[in-house]
Every structure is written in structure tokens, then in C-alpha cells.
Nucleic acid binder design. Structure first.
Length: 270
DNA sequence: AAAGACACCTGGGAGC
DNA sequence: TGCTCCCAGGTGTCTT
């Protein structure tokens, strides 16, 4: 499940192969993604140089003069660097052909991702309402505490809202709340400043560690699997329902918050 | 305005 | 072995 760390690792992974290279063509094999891929996308980007690669939330942006190619990996998407001889596998929906003969290949079994031609930069409708970046200084205890004050929703639901802070998905929301000792269902406006400070710190920590862990796999980015290594990371609570808490040994519980399952420790998280 | 519900999609595992 | 059912998960959009 690509959360912010995998998106950032993917950006870093493709960057050395495509920065300052020209896009020759974009081959769409199956454009049925979250939104249908624009059929003229190849024509728009043909001959354009990729001048910059950035990330905003979970979107990767390949910038060029007329537009940015905006890629979201959804829940199951991945990017791989391949060449013309590489076999095309199931769900390899789209190829970005580069002037150096490399190909950025987009694979997405569940098709929740998207590939969009963005001519509006950061004021694009999908970007303009996004909240702060979790690893930036703008995401701090003052900011999150202020956002919590007027909200009655569960703290877990709040930190997963992209208009508040981007890139915190179901896995890292659960992990950071456990590390901060906060019950995921606790109403946001009932949490005092101190635990919010700890939560902010833990969110940053857990994301940064995951990026660091995945970074070690970048040298293998062109390998067949193309999967960043952070998946091997041992989670404290995610996916560990009924298993003993690493801190107190009590069996971990599970509940549904905002239509998403959440594992937590009833003793360590208040 | 805020909160909740729902939809999109496929693979994988459980249960029959 | 094969079928059906359920679940996972990001996020835009609709409903309450």
C-alpha cells in the first residue's frame, strides 16, 4: 500500500533515470484508471524535457514546460524503470518512453491510481486543497492542536484527512497513534496539547524511518520486483489484531474508525 | 460547515 | 478443486 514513504522512494527511484531527459512518447495500454487517461497525453508530452521531479502529498509530478505529468499510485500502483526488451506484465497500464531508451512503467492492479496532464501547477483542483506536508516545519504541534480544537471526529480520522496533513495513511496513522499512546477513536477536541506534541513527533519519526528503510532499496529500483524495502518493516500494531502488544503483552484490539479498520492496544492507548 | 457514507477495483484468503 | 464471499485500502464525491 503506497503511503507517503513509498511515493517518495518511487520519486527518488525514477529521478536519476528521467531528470533532464526528454519524453519521447507515452504509451497507454489500458487507460481505465481512477480517471480515464487522456488519449492525447502522448502528443502533449512528446519532445518535452523533464525539468524537475517533485512530490506533493502522494502525487508525483514530472514537470515540463507545457504541463506536469501527475502520477498517483492509488493503493496498488508502482513505477519501475525498464527497457524496450522487458516483458509486459499484467496491469502494466502505461509506459513513459524516454530519450535515453529507458521506460518508466506504471503498474496498478486495482486501478485506483491516476496519470493526469496538469497544466495548472500547484493550483490544480486535486492539489489546491491539500494540507501541510508532514515532514515540513509547517506540520507542528501548534498547527495540529489548532486543527483539533473544533473537531469532534476521531483523532485517527483527522490525521488521515489530506486537507489537514497529507500522506498519513491507514498504516502509519495506526502506528503513530500507538507510539504516542493515544486511543485512535478519541475525539480530536478532547486531546490536550502535550499528547498532540508527541503525536506530531511520532508521525514524523515513523514516516522518516520508513523512507530511510526504503532508501536502501533504491539501488535495486530497476530490479524485477521494483518494490521498496520498507514493506519488510515490522509494524507495532498494523495487521496484528489479537496478537500481544509489544509493550504490555495484552492482546491488541481492532475497531472500525471512519470505514477503516484500526488495531490498537486498549491498555497502552488512552 | 462538519461528519459520515459510499464508490471505485482486483487479488487473496477464508469458508463451503 | 472450484465457487462465493469478504476484506484491504486512498480519496473524491455525494448525503445527512
Amino acid at each position: 500500500m503506497p503511503e507517503l514513504p513509498e511515493v517518495e522512494i518511487s520519486r527518488q527511484g525514477i529521478q536519476p533515470f528521467c531528470l533532464n531527459k526528454k519524453i519521447v512518447d507515452i504509451v497507454v495500454r489500458d487507460g481505465r484508471l481512477r480517471w480515464p487517461v487522456d488519449k492525447t497525453i502522448g502528443k502533449i508530452f512528446a519532445g518535452q524535457k523533464i525539468t524537475q521531479l517533485t512530490r506533493r502529498g502522494k502525487y508525483i509530478l514530472l514537470h515540463s514546460a507545457p504541463a506536469s505529468l501527475m502520477i498517483h499510485l492509488g493503493m496498488s500502483g508502482s513505477l519501475k524503470i525498464v527497457n524496450a526488451k522487458t516483458q509486459i506484465n499484467k496491469h502494466d497500464h502505461l509506459d513513459i518512453m524516454l530519450s535515453n531508451k529507458k521506460i518508466i512503467r506504471y503498474n496498478d492492479p486495482r486501478r485506483f491510481g491516476s496519470v493526469i496532464c496538469n497544466q495548472q501547477g500547484y493550483s490544480h483542483p486535486l492539489l489546491v486543497n491539500l494540507g501541510v506536508e508532514p515532514l515540513s516545519e509547517d506540520f507542528n504541534a501548534d498547527y495540529l492542536y489548532a486543527a483539533c480544537r473544533t473537531k469532534t471526529i476521531a483523532i485517527k480520522a483527522l490525521i488521515m484527512q489530506s486537507k489537514i496533513v497529507v500522506g498519513v495513511g491507514n498504516i502509519y496513522a495506526q502506528e503513530s497513534l500507538f507510539l504516542a499512546g493515544i486511543h485512535p477513536a478519541k475525539a480530536s477536541n478532547k486531546i490536550s496539547k502535550k499528547p498532540i506534541e508527541v503525536l506530531v513527533e511520532k508521525i514524523k519519526q515513523v514516516l522518516a524511518k520508513a523512507i530511510e528503510a526504503g532508501g536502501s532499496s533504491l539501488k535495486d529500483f530497476t530490479a524485477a520486483d521494483g518494490k521498496p524495502g520498507y514493506f519488510q518493516h515490522a509494524h507495532q500494531v498494523y495487521g496484528r489484531r489479537d496478537q500481544p502488544c509489544y509493550q504490555c503483552n495484552q492482546p491488541l484490539r481492532q475497531m472500525v474508525i471512519a470505514q477503516r479498520s484500526s488495531v490498537y492496544c486498549g491498555k497502552c492507548q488512552k
